[in-house]
């Protein structure tokens, strides 16, 4: 997908509409809707869909970066260290933004120490 082409804006518009519909649809259906009760049921496979999809996106973003960084080993170490710092921070605190900032700080520190910056 090209960020300057019409496809980009079509994707943005479609994503905006879909996001709104998934939030609004339950208010249009009856509270006794069988579909909604099924979706909200505890232990539904749906509860694994969001986290699994996030894991898929994470792999698609991180693995190519790791393969690129593999050409220069010090960069790879800083990248892996930054990811580890983010993972530890996100397990210790519930604030996603703070965990991301700490991970970025860790990555920057490791880059500076390895002389990659």
């Amino acid at each position: 997908m090209n960020a300057s082409g019409p496809g980009f804006w079509a994707a943005v518009a479609a994503m905006a509409v879909i996001t709104y519909l998934t939030r609004a649809l339950p208010f249009l259906l009856s509270e006794r809707s069988r579909l909604l009760r099924r979706l909200a049921r505890e232990g539904s496979a749906l509860s694994a869909l969001g986290p699994s999809l996030l894991a898929g996106i994470a792999a698609a973003v991180i693995v190519p970066d790791l393969l690129d960084a593999g050409a220069g080993m010090p960069g790879l170490g800083a990248y892996a260290g930054g990811l580890a710092a983010t993972a530890v921070a996100s397990r210790l605190m519930s604030n996603t933004g703070a965990a991301v900032l700490l991970g970025m700080a860790g990555y920057g520190l490791l880059l500076a120490l390895s002389g990659q910056g």
């Binding site: 509860s47 969001g50 986290p51 996030l54 994470a58 973003v61 990811l83 996100s90 397990r91 991301v100």
Partner: peptide, 28 residues
């Protein structure tokens, strides 16, 4: 530029709770 991988790492770690660890590990 590290913000994007860091964000998805954080989201994955925070969502892999409540018995979803195996699903997330398999997906990864």
């Amino acid at each position: 530029r590290f913000a994007l991988p860091a964000l998805f790492t954080a989201l994955v770690c925070q969502s892999a709770r409540g018995g979803l660890g195996l699903s997330v590990a398999a997906a990864l």
